[in-house]
Amino acid sequence: MKWGRSTGVIALALLLSGCGAEFDPLFVESGSSGPVIGWRECPGAQRDGITEVGLYRWDHDGTVDDPGQLLWHIKASDGTPLHRIQLGSAPQGFTTRLPLTVELDPASTYALRANMTSDDLVSGFLTFKPRQLATGRVVFSESQEESRGSYENRNDEDFGCFRD
């Protein structure tokens, strides 16, 4: 998924670090039918959410710009963002660019890259292992995990949600 957004990822890092954000809003958690990709909603933000997402087999020499082999890629065909997407599916309003055709190995590391609507330069990136996705756990950032409750109780400013 070479979106030509290398500068966008760099801009996100600069934007988030300049604003004091510790993490981007992308996360993954266990769902009833498998992993669910999520975007933390900022209070008062309009039209934020995922409009494009790709899953990669993480290359140990990978980078945010080149995380490894692309396994799955979807993009919103109508620009409508979502805050939750079942990994491997293409929800209504999304087009599958590359279907997921492999089963995820619980011990392997994968990477997710996502773009959001409210600003084409803002992207999310995280790495995770499927075995981290226990019920009630959230994985975000660089394979950081914690309970859903602890994640929800984090200050919104940790994720770049700043009130005017």
Rank of each mutant, 00 (worst) to 15 (best):
I74H: 01
P99E: 10
V53S: 01
T80M: 12
I10D: 14
A11D: 08
I74L: 01
G54K: 05
L87R: 03
P81G: 10
D120W: 12
G34V: 02
G8D: 15
D105L: 12
P25S: 14
L55P: 02
D61F: 12
V28P: 05
L12G: 08
P67G: 03
D119L: 12
I37Y: 05
R84P: 06
L71H: 06
V53Q: 02
S33W: 01
R40S: 07
I85Q: 03
P81E: 12
P130K: 03
T95C: 06
A45C: 10
R40C: 04
L100A: 12
F140K: 06
P130N: 05
H60F: 13
L100W: 09
A21L: 08
S143P: 08
T51Y: 00
T7Q: 14
D120C: 08
F94Q: 06
Q132H: 14
T101V: 14
Y56K: 00
G8T: 00
V122A: 07
C42P: 08
D61I: 09
I10W: 09
P35E: 07
P35S: 11
E145L: 09
S108T: 13
L112Y: 06
S33D: 11
A114H: 00
M116Y: 04
L82K: 12
P130D: 02
T63L: 04
E52I: 01
C42D: 08
Y56E: 02
V122G: 06
F128S: 10
D65R: 07
R137Y: 11
L26Q: 04
I10P: 00
F128P: 08
L16T: 01
E22L: 14
S30W: 07
P43R: 03
L15H: 14
I50G: 01
D105C: 13
P130A: 03
S17P: 02
T101P: 04
P91E: 10
R131L: 13
S89H: 12
D24I: 00
L55T: 02
I50S: 07
S118N: 14
G68C: 10
R131W: 06
E145F: 11
A114Y: 00
G31K: 12
D24M: 05
L15F: 11
